[in-house]
Design a protein around this nucleic acid. Structure first.
Lengths: 362, 362
DNA sequence: TTGAAAGCGATACCAC
DNA sequence: GTGGTATCGCTTTCAA
């Protein structure tokens, strides 16, 4: 004697829409309509359905819904490294906005490795994401090919630049860097060390360009080094600081590079900021926690996240009238770590320095 | 004249398993078996199938697969605030491990709000996650009820404690705090301010208990304040530092509280660390970037993440032999921000202080 | 060893 | 307004 499985009132299994329908004495169509407001349902049934849902503790299965509706409600978000606060800030805001529109975020961390990025993107695409937000880890990422093939709307953040077929949001790195370097030049610095990461990244390339432009205009001499992490930055910067003709200022192109540079500065024994100035991209809370407060170029993290989300949302809604490339401006935050160049290189040897610290500025 | 949709070779639509089957001249069952290695398939067909997959650029639809197999391949991860580096560190490691086992992470940020946490958890449960990893934002979270009801395996991290039906991983907060406070007491501090967050959180409650225990044993006097964010911490700490009989040391129970306390210290004008010592939970990179380097209690972030993932994975594999509660130890990192108490409260008025800084200790 | 076909749990079209 | 039901793309018996 066969009994359709559905009919046995199994108790320890998650209720389905049919269980609700049966309990409420209506059809599954009605339950679905109550839930999604797709079409009008009479108040009496409306209530019966809601009661049944409450009673059974029903929670719809999005796998099934997504399969049928061809809309997964999932957005894939790929970042180069989630432990970097610039990225986690963006992620945080996007997650919030997405949740507000009933989307969820599948996170993929590429760990700054293009192969890994590609692998993660492919896995993501299997999930039928409705859209993708991507902070690429290489300038021209293989992953983009896969995305194109799957025809999933995607927006490129921070390091995107102009790649055909993708929307992109970034900041005006060129002007920001020029402004930062200009600040140093105006203070009187003539020899500046830029600590960059991978010049193949769009944003870094732009910063390098801005840096060079400023030096050229301001008659300064510059040196640029590329490091992949704080440890490498620390070593390389230290080496530069120990040269006879050392720079009087450092321009760190990311928070990570600032961290490495700072370690190097302390180890060099040079008075800071008296003997060496520092300015950094990425305005982090810790930069105003200990002295000297670090001068920075603040990127509008929230605005970046919001623009990225809004752009994607419009695409999801089929809106075609979107500026495909949007750029935001950074803000120069002058604090204590940038001062006029005081000591000269020959005084380098002095160590265990006494430092003058001013009152907190803000 | 009706034509079954399937038969029209639609070109601009993602290929399905049936397209592959047709192209390879086999059944869908065979394609599935080739893909998943479920059962043996003859080498000739094997190859035909693989070729067809390659040709069509087929990527399986996980929504459909998950629906059918009752296994979504998704893990829900709920954190109180992803911008806090302790949580993003854990997330980062878990994401990596999960990807290694072919799972993906749906991220939910509760923003330290229990209502929000519950809402996010419910949304997560609709996704049919195979498991959940949760850093709860309240001691006894309503969300846990929902999880129980859905019978999804879940592990509680950091703030879990012993909740029946859930595995949990945390650190020995009691001993760690006792050790930290003991360090201050041994230096000679007798009046210590603890800057805590929400005492309803398990881990914070344990830290408070450890703090009290240390004070009692060491004959110190303590004061505990609770703050919800750095701004509040800054204000409250500043107020305390301006009292006549002010503490000579501060114990910040989280990175956020350390940030707020530091702002207050600078604003108070008290010499630091000469006039006021500071020790903090959570060992962050920035704490050794600027002077004085901050003494901390380091939590083994990676180990926490790994244990959490491993525990969940075992549950997913049906392993029942799991210690339901696992605890890890913290490490006291003594640096420069904790010194013997020097100045007394009456000297508070002096400001624009000159500070002695030692060489970096490493 | 392989194929046919019955679902998984929703949605949405077509009737009434 | 409401209900019946084909269907989304895949997995997994059951038969052959």
């Amino acid at each position: 004697m066969k009994v359709p499985k559905r009919q046995q009132a199994v108790n320890n299994v998650r209720p389905t829409i049919r269980d609700v329908a049966r309990a409420a004495g209506v059809s599954t169509a009605t339950v679905s309509n109550v839930l999604r407001g797709t079409r009008f349902v009479g108040p009496a049934r409306q209530k019966k359905v809601r009661d049944a849902i409450e009673l059974l503790g029903y929670n719809p299965n999005w796998l099934a819904a997504g399969l049928r509706a061809r809309r997964s409600g999932v957005i894939g978000l790929v970042v180069p490294d989630i432990t970097i606060s610039f990225f986690s800030g963006i992620l945080s805001r996007i997650e919030e906005l997405a949740a507000g529109s009933n989307y969820q975020i599948i996170l993929a961390d590429a760990q700054e490795k293009p192969e890994r990025e590609r692998e993660r993107v492919r896995a993501l695409l299997r999930r039928q994401p409705d859209g993708l937000i991507l902070v690429p880890c290489s300038d021209y990422s293989a992953a983009l090919q896969d995305i194109r093939q799957h025809k999933v709307p995607a927006v490129l953040v921070d390091r995107g630049g102009e790649v055909s077929g993708f929307d992109s949001i970034d900041v005006n790195n060129f002007d920001a860097t020029r402004e930062g370097a200009g600040h140093l030049l105006r203070l009187g610095h003539r020899q500046i060390l830029a600590v960059a990461t991978n010049p193949a990244l769009r944003n870094i390339a732009q910063r390098i360009a801005g840096f060079k432009a400023a030096l050229k205009a301001g008659r300064g001499r510059g040196q640029i080094i590329n490091c992949s992490d704080p440890v490498e930055a620390r070593q390389k910067v230290l080496r530069v600081l120990r040269e006879r003709d050392r720079p009087t200022a450092i321009f760190a192109f990311t928070e990570q590079m600032a961290l490495g540079s700072l370690r190097a500065i302390w180890e060099s024994g040079i008075e800071f900021p008296g003997g060496i100035s520092l300015i950094a991209f990425d305005d982090c809370e810790w930069m105003t926690a200990l002295r000297p407060f670090v001068s920075t170029l603040r990127q509008p993290t929230n605005a970046i996240a919001e623009k990225a989300w809004l752009t994607l949302l419009k695409r999801l809604q089929g809106n075609q009238r979107i500026r495909s490339r949007q750029q935001l401006e950074c803000t120069l935050m002058i604090r204590e770590s940038t001062t006029r160049p005081g000591r000269v290189a020959s005084q380098l040897a002095e160590s265990a320095a006494r430092r003058q610290t001013a009152d907190p500025s803000g």
